[in-house]
Design a protein around this nucleic acid. Structure first.
Lengths: 170, 170
DNA sequence: ACCATAAGTTCTATTTTAGAACTGTCAATA
DNA sequence: TATTGACAGTTCTAAAATAGAACTTATGGT
């Protein structure tokens, strides 16, 4: 499967994975949320190769997650800042960080702590239902096919069918 | 940077990315949450190559996200099911799906809808503060170095230092 | 003229992934 | 008894992506 086919899958997870589902994109976005904006700063703080960094920044701009803003003329230089679409990735970043805090820390404890300025306390993110406000868990959620679903299968029908077809033609 | 160095970074995001930060792991986990458990079912529904699927399942088992459970003897066959550590990935999956629902759907609409059995309504996931219950946004969160932070830099100091050292030695 | 800064681009070597075919074990069927 | 099919992988080669380092372009400072 190629990357570009991923963003056309009838699945919101697959399409999002096309944007952030590689080793570096999420790390770059973490830096963005920590106020890093410039090429060399990304490069220094991540240790990513310049080649890959240029490529990933281009991709994130193409997807509308980052925007290039000039911060000086002559020579023309740009900063990369999060768009609203990019800022909306915050719950993804936070849920990933939280899982790491719970399941991947070593004896020394959490690398970062988060303070909620609104209430002044250190907090963890909690995912709740938009309708009743209760915390969510997988077993209390039922999945239905939506208007954008393919055929009868709620799950990823295109890949299933693609596989069937190639099995038939063999 | 190699994959194994990633899981030792003093950053909960980097360590989680070491587990789920590739094209296929998240798609495999989506299938797990949709009750897929067997090798050929994963392969058929995702279109992933058998080689990579075997590799990724092994990795997810090694990280304790999935567990191999025998479902028949002779020939010995296993199912892959989510551990508690794996079930805890649900907020990550849901926040990714939700972002895709908001930002990546085409004209036909959402592929899937989610019903909260507890309240009976179709819902979206919302991330809130564990302390005050208010919805979270990046600008209301302040980051502090925690006990597991490296040196003065709250962010990923090891990579920064590694880069500095190689620049100095050059 | 020389060096530094910033943001890339280009190059080769290595690693990862895609795609297909193959293996081993057993059950059911002809 | 031989054959077929299901299942869970493994093995192979070719193609693609990544790592690591050097190079380019533009400009300002000494």
């Amino acid at each position: 499967m190629k990357w570009d086919t991923l963003e056309e899958e009838p699945c919101s997870l697959a399409r999002t994975v096309a944007v952030i589902g590689d080793r570096w994109s999420l790390l770059i976005l973490r830096e963005c949320f920590l106020r890093i904006r410039r090429f060399d700063d990304f490069q220094a703080s991540l240790g990513i190769t310049r080649h890959l960094l240029a490529d990933r920044l281009k991709k994130l701009v193409r997807f509308g997650v980052l925007r290039k803003i000039p911060y000086q003329e002559a020579p023309k230089r740009y900063e990369y800042i999060l768009t609203q679409k990019g800022l909306d990735l915050y719950p993804i970043i936070m849920s990933i960080v939280h899982w790491g805090n719970v399941h991947m820390v070593d004896a020394r404890g959490r690398p970062l702590l988060h303070e909620h300025k609104t209430c002044g306390k250190m907090f963890d993110p909690v995912m709740v239902c938009s309708e009743c406000g209760e915390p969510l868990s997988a077993k209390h959620v039922h999945v239905h096919p939506g208007p954008g679903a393919r055929r009868s299968s709620p799950v990823h029908a295109s890949a299933r069918e693609r596989t069937k077809r190639s099995a038939e033609s063999a």
